[in-house]
């Protein structure tokens, strides 16, 4: 096996490199251990089929956005254009910033209440990254871009669906 530090070819199973004495034990089992781990590294977000989101302009009123969420049965809208996403407005934003003072904020532009500059990931990113990103950042939705242009949005539910398709005998989706 190849030493990552000096590229010396060591015999398989060596604990230290014969040439530079670096520790090689971490090379032993650094790969993914199961099919699922392999599949979330091999499969890109594009494979999940990111859903086309509803886009709104930054100056649309809060009231109109709430109506859009109600009528389209969706949990968030993206603010901006597909070339440049400036924000995201989700149910959580509605709870935190709109509920309790709807009358006052209804005519105001959504740009004042959205979450600005949301995290996004490239369509070629492995699913593992998105899972990590959503877990760490507590996001329910992630915009997916391709060459800087918006492709769609993936949700936590898409992740569960993908994982269940890998283990259909364990997680039955229907």
């Amino acid at each position: 096996m190849l030493c990552p530090y000096c590229s010396f070819e060591n015999i398989v199973g060596a604990d230290t490199c014969d040439s530079c004495s670096q520790d090689l034990t971490s090379l032993e089992n650094h790969g993914p251990k199961s099919n699922m781990e392999q599949s979330i590294l091999d499969t890109s977000l594009a494979h999940l089929g990111p859903k086309i989101p509803v886009m709104v302009s930054p100056d649309i009123s809060v009231e109109n956005v709430i109506t859009i969420l109600q009528e389209n049965h969706i949990g968030c809208v993206l603010v901006g254009s597909s070339d440049r996403i400036v924000g995201i407005f989700s149910e959580r934003d509605a709870l935190n910033k709109v509920a309790g003072r709807f009358k006052e904020v209804a005519p105001q532009p959504i740009s004042r209440f959205m979450t600005s500059d949301p995290e996004s990931l490239d369509a070629n990113t492995p699913i593992a990254f998105a899972i990590n990103e959503m877990s760490v950042g507590h996001f329910r939705h992630l915009p997916v871009t391709y060459k800087g242009k918006l492709e769609g949005v993936i949700s936590i539910r898409d992740m569960l669906q993908f994982l269940s398709s890998k283990y259909p005998e364990l997680i039955q989706a229907s």
Binding site: I156, M159, L163
Partner: peptide
């Protein structure tokens, strides 16, 4: 929550996730 369930899944693929570089490529 669904989010907690995804945490659970990612906890059990932790070696895979924690060893990822900060950018995927």
């Amino acid at each position: 929550s669904v989010r907690r369930a995804v945490h659970f899944l990612s906890d059990h693929t932790s070696d895979t996730l924690y060893n990822l570089p900060p950018t995927h490529n």
